[in-house]
Simulated assay, not measured.
Amino acid sequence: MLVNKSITVFDFETSGLNPEKDQVIEIAAIRCMGDEVISEFSTLIKFDGNLSPKVIELTGIKVENLTHGLTEDTAFRILNRIIGDSLLVAHNAAFDLSFLHHTLMRLANRSIQNSFIDTLTVCRDKLYYPHTLNDVCAHYAVTLDGAHRAMNDVYACWEVFKRITQEVNIESYINKLSYLKKYGPPKWVPSYAKLVATENKYK
């Protein structure tokens, strides 16, 4: 565990996979110090478009569920206060960081500067394929009920993070992002990210 380090574990559910044109429809985040969760935030976000059958199937979120969600601007203002200057943690952080960047650029013409740890990058180094959050949770005997709802995923990621910190020098993974060679690097990453090309390991 990173002693005396404030950590925010966060997750987005989105209307699609393209952060330049799609929107975050659900946010969840927990702010942690040591082993303790000191605050949490979760909300659905108002959305005027249509959701694909795939998104509805994956998340269980329907357009009518978003009618009374927070406005995007309000939701991200609150998220910014939760995050502060903390270390960000996410599973497949390249995805969530990219949506965070593009949303902040659209709303406030600024990006993020926070350091981060990607639990997917750690798991690609340590574990055999597959590396979905569901699979990683199964490996570490972490319960994940209701995957692809943001707060469920956040707490599962937090439990995985605590377990992997017992096995690796977690500080060596700060700002490190791996990507699969066959797909190439992500379209956007923070300028301070250390990109590493990798391949899945199979039994």
Rank of each mutant, 00 (worst) to 15 (best):
His68Val: 12
Gly69Ile: 13
Leu70Thr: 07
Glu72Lys: 15
Asp73Arg: 14
Thr74Ala: 10
Thr74Met: 13
Ala75Asn: 10
Phe76Thr: 04
Phe76Leu: 11
Phe76Arg: 11
Asn80Cys: 09
Arg81Met: 12
Arg81Pro: 05
Gly84Asp: 04
Gly84Ala: 08
Gly84Tyr: 07
Gly84Asn: 08
Asp85Lys: 11
Asp85Glu: 14
Leu87Ala: 02
Leu87Phe: 00
Leu88Asp: 00
Val89Gly: 01
His91Trp: 01
Asn92Trp: 06
Ala93Lys: 03
Ala93Glu: 00
Phe95Gly: 01
Phe95Asn: 06
Ser98Asn: 06
Phe99Gln: 00
His101Trp: 07
Leu104Gln: 15
Met105Ile: 11
Met105Val: 14
Leu107Cys: 08
Leu107Tyr: 04
Leu107Lys: 07
Leu107Asp: 02
Ala108Asn: 15
Asn109Phe: 13
Asn109Tyr: 09
Asn109Ser: 13
Asn109Thr: 11
Arg110Gly: 02
Arg110Asp: 07
Ser111Pro: 01
Gln113Asp: 12
Gln113Val: 14
Gln113Arg: 14
Ser115Tyr: 02
Phe116Asp: 05
Phe116Gly: 03
Asp118Lys: 06
Leu120Phe: 14
Thr121Gly: 02
Thr121Tyr: 06
Thr121Leu: 09
Val122Tyr: 05
Arg124Ala: 02
Lys126Phe: 08
Lys126Glu: 10
Tyr128Met: 13
His131Ser: 04
His131Thr: 08
Thr132Val: 08
Leu133Met: 07
Asn134Lys: 11
Asn134Ile: 13
Asp135Met: 09
Cys137Glu: 00
His139Phe: 09
Tyr140Ile: 06
Tyr140Gln: 03
Ala141Thr: 12
Val142His: 00
Val142Thr: 00
Thr143Lys: 15
Thr143Pro: 01
Thr143Asp: 10
Thr143Gly: 04
Asp145Thr: 15
Ala147Glu: 06
His148Met: 05
Asn152Gly: 07
Val154Phe: 02
Tyr155Asp: 04
Cys157Trp: 02
Cys157Thr: 15
Trp158Ile: 08
Glu159Thr: 08
Glu159Gly: 09
Glu159Ala: 15
Val160Trp: 11
Phe161Val: 11
Phe161Asn: 08
Lys162Gly: 02
Lys162Leu: 13
Lys162Gln: 15
Ile164Thr: 07
Thr165Leu: 08
Thr165Gln: 10
Thr165His: 04
Asn169Met: 09
Ile170Pro: 01
Ile170Ser: 04
Glu171Gln: 07
Glu171Lys: 12
Lys176Gly: 03
Lys176Ala: 10
Lys176Trp: 03
Leu177Met: 12
Leu177Val: 13
Leu177Ile: 15
Tyr179Pro: 10
Tyr179Leu: 11
Tyr179Trp: 10
Leu180Cys: 09
Lys181Ile: 09
Lys181Pro: 02
Lys182Leu: 08
Lys182Trp: 11
Tyr183Glu: 14
Gly184Ser: 04
Pro185Tyr: 04
Pro185Gln: 08
Lys187Trp: 05
Trp188Thr: 11
Trp188Val: 07
Ala193Val: 04
Leu195Pro: 01
